[in-house]
């Protein structure tokens, strides 16, 4: 079911795992700022962060032997889709839940 990581891959795993979370947050942060400020220039940077997250996840998956097993490969795919869609979904929830109160900055809806 699991194939333990090799000693040589320890650092890669720790580093890429941390990067997955950090870049996930950076993607969410830039995504939210871009929509909040209406600044379209931030959106490519947001997706660049996501691309970094994707690369980190693939390196992590390789170092932790995840891609050798279908189950763990599905988890990797699920994670990537989850991180990609979560900020979109939460933004829609934000707009919906704040609809009744005055929001000073009109969110940009279409990209």
């Amino acid at each position: 079911m699991i194939e333990p990581a090799s000693l040589g891959n320890f650092f890669t795993i720790f580093f890429t795992s941390a990067m997955v979370i950090m870049l996930g947050a950076l993607y969410a942060l830039l995504f939210a700022f871009s929509r909040l400020k209406g600044d379209k220039r931030l959106m490519p940077l947001a997706y660049l962060s996501y691309a970094g997250l994707l690369i980190s996840t693939l390196f992590l998956a390789d170092a932790a032997n995840l891609l050798k097993h279908p189950f763990w490969t599905v988890i990797v795919a699920f994670m990537l889709v989850g991180y990609l869609l979560a900020p979109h979904a939460i933004w829609h929830l934000c707009v919906g839940t704040h609809a009744a109160e005055h929001v000073e900055v009109e969110p940009i809806k279409n990209y």
Binding site: G24, Y27, L29, Y83, C94
Partner: peptide, 11 residues
């Protein structure tokens, strides 16, 4: 946690 980042920025 990532979801909360978006909400915090919005708020």
């Amino acid at each position: 946690l990532v979801a909360m980042v978006v909400h915090a920025v919005f708020d």
